[in-house]
Amino acid sequence: MTKNLPSIVSSSVVLFGIWLSLTLSFDLQEIILGVVVSVLAAVAVKGALTGNLLRLLNPEKFLAAVGYILFFLTQMVKANIDIFFRIFKPVIPIKPGIVKADITLKSERARAIVANSITLTPGTITIDIIGDEIFIHWVFLPGGDVHLATQAMVDSFAGRLENIFE
């Protein structure tokens, strides 16, 4: 219980935030009910909803997290511009392939974030993770050594997350 306390607190805060945005009411009764329900739900799942977010209170980690989100958003916009112009070409330029890369992150949550981020960024989707290897489908294989290029792409995400999670 005490071990999970930071996770439970983070989950309660997030759940309460969701409650507030759904009810949009600052009536005292509703707020009290919201707090009670959020805490009960967070305790019931032992804080697994969010994990420990309290470490983000450390300014360095907070900045790293903001940096990651900005990096991810720019990549996502780039991905869409890329796919947009690809789709409207008379002959779609594709050179597909599935390439593996190593993933050194140990935390399951961090791995899930990396896999999701890769899926939403230019030209790549994650297909599977087996052990410490992640398999990525390219819509257009990069030139040169594909394994090196893929590893560099994975590390650009994983490296940023390492600062936050480890």
Partner: peptide
């Protein structure tokens, strides 16, 4: 359009995931 035009299942997935999200 991407899901319609892309030739195989993985490439359809590219169009169907990134573009629908944004």
């Amino acid at each position: 359009l991407g899901v319609f035009r892309m030739p195989d299942v993985f490439n359809k997935m590219h169009a169907g995931t990134k573009a629908t999200t944004l």
